[in-house]
């Protein structure tokens, strides 16, 4: 079958001018688009207002679906599950036995911890959440990892606040609209979280990889001190993420650190909590996470 000839290559002068103008517009569009994309990576705030406007406009549909069945979430889930069913099954079994052991261990620690804190009179009091929200959608077809949550400026959410679910850290707020906010997930490659190993407080740096896992590096250690099954929580240094928020479990070791699976799966239709930034009481706003020097970050 011959490809359809669209009649665009006619010899009429007028049609030729029209076609030329269309090509000109297309080429200008390509150059402008490329420049905008490059500038956006350097300065992500430029298009923030436009994007958050679109997020506001599309949020009602996601809200309705969330409120209804939530069936849409199953499609991709089942595809992904089919894709790695065998290895995942085995990994999950291992995780489960490990998690059981850890839970028992943690109960003991919790009791001991409460007692010690009472002794020291260091109890900080529970962090009062700023807002609770639904996670509406994630950037499912992009290599950047964002999510839209169902709480915005009107709920007290501001840029640069930690977001967590019941299981662990999700990310930080980035752009805030009246009713929705865009969250940079911890799995995004631009997101770096100062962390500690739960059992001994070893200072670590957790950064996203763009897929479902996290890259973990020890800050000051020769060799690789990490072990599979190590639990990480945020250290609170840097003043953004609240200390002791669970982040993930090490599942694989690499030459210079390890890979961790986040404890909180930023799947859709889960409830999240927006917390105040860890140094919200102080005068200075926290610097953006991406630009901090990883060495000087670990102040203590």
């Amino acid at each position: 079958m011959a490809s359809p000839n669209d009649g665009r290559h006619s010899y009429a002068r007028r049609a030729q001018y029209g076609a030329f103008a269309a090509y000109l517009v297309a080429i200008v569009g390509i150059i402008t688009g490329l420049m905008a994309a490059i500038i956006w990576v350097v300065d992500p705030v430029g298009f923030a207002n436009l994007r958050i406007l679109v997020a506001e406009a599309t949020a009602p549909v996601a809200r309705t679906v969330n409120a209804g069945t939530g069936a849409a979430g199953g499609i991709d889930d089942s595809i992904a599950a089919w894709w790695r069913a065998g290895s995942q099954n085995q990994a999950l079994r291992e995780d489960l036995t490990r998690a059981r052991r850890m839970v028992i261990h943690a109960h003991g620690l919790e009791a001991e911890n409460a007692e010690l804190r009472r002794l020291l009179a260091l109890t900080r009091g529970d962090i009062r959440p700023i807002a609770t929200a639904q996670l509406l959608s994630t950037s499912a077809n992009s290599t950047r990892r964002y999510a839209i949550i169902d709480a915005g400026y009107g709920d007290g959410v501001r840029s640069g606040q930690p977001v967590r679910s019941a299981d662990g850290l999700i990310g930080r707020t980035l752009e805030v609209g009246p009713n929705v906010a865009r969250v940079l997930l911890i799995t995004d490659q631009q997101n770096v979280v100062p962390a500690r190993r739960a059992r001994d407080g070893l200072a670590l740096l957790v950064s996203g990889r763009g897929d479902e896992l996290l890259d973990v590096r020890a800050l000051n250690a020769a060799g690789n001190p990490l072990k599979i099954g190590d639990v990480l929580h945020s250290s609170g240094s840097g003043g953004l993420y609240q200390p002791r928020t669970p982040i993930g479990i090490i599942i694989r070791l690499t030459s210079e650190g390890g890979l961790a699976r986040p404890l909180a799966d930023p799947g859709s239709n889960i409830g999240v909590i927006v917390e105040p930034a860890a140094n919200a009481g102080l005068d200075e706003p926290p610097p953006p996470v991406e630009q901090r020097d990883p060495i000087s970050e670990d102040g203590n």
Binding site: A55, N66, A72, L136, S137, S139, A140, D211, D265, P266
Partner: peptide, 15 residues
């Protein structure tokens, strides 16, 4: 893509 798909890594095709 703005619908609540559960995706922890880029799996949804560029529809």
């Amino acid at each position: 893509v703005t619908l609540p798909f559960d995706a922890a890594f880029p799996m949804l095709p560029p529809l």
